[in-house]
């Protein structure tokens, strides 16, 4: 059925639930997993070039470290369930576009994601990144709430 499932995660509780579901689905169907984290790009209003340079660099290092920790946890959980799992992260101002790009690059045939991310308004609406993935993805999208 599905051979390769992309599961984006931002570390929120809801995305952890989606990760667990993705692992169960992959285990049940013999699919591989690609765990993905999109790092929002650093922004600042300061005009101090030095400060800009330093803090942006620190931000990059800290967020890359956070991405690796997050993704390592998913990979470990997948391994425990006997599921093969690749990990990837990318810096992007548009997480949804990064998710779709990664799904294409890794030839995933399903994207499984939470209905909301970290900035979600629980229960009210569909999260904006999930909404955009649904609108633009050409592969099926499985949405968890």
């Amino acid at each position: 059925m599905f051979q390769r499932i992309l599961v984006p995660t931002d570390g929120s509780d809801l995305s952890k639930k989606a990760v667990r579901a993705a692992i169960r689905l992959a285990a049940g169907t013999g699919a591989r997993l690609v765990a993905f984290h999109a790092i929002p790009k650093f922004r600042t209003f300061t005009l101090d070039a030095q400060m800009l340079e330093d803090t942006a660099g620190e931000y990059r290092a800290a967020s890359a470290a956070r991405a690796r920790t997050l993704l390592a946890a998913v990979a470990a959980e997948a391994r425990k369930a006997g599921v093969a799992c690749d990990t990837a992260h990318a810096s992007s101002d548009q997480p949804w576009a990064a998710i779709i790009r990664e799904a294409k690059r890794k030839r995933c045939d399903l994207v499984l994601m939470a209905s909301h991310g970290r900035r979600g308004l629980q229960g009210v609406l569909l999260g904006s990144e999930t909404q955009k993935v649904l609108t633009h993805s050409t592969v099926p999208v499985l949405v968890y709430r």
């Binding site: 209905s115 609406l125 569909l126 649904l134 099926p140 999208v141 499985l142 949405v143 709430r145």
Partner: peptide, 13 residues
């Protein structure tokens, strides 16, 4: 359906 369902929804295009 996506907005109001409490159970997972799989969307095909």
């Amino acid at each position: 359906v996506l907005t109001h369902s409490t159970i997972p929804v799989l969307v095909y295009r």
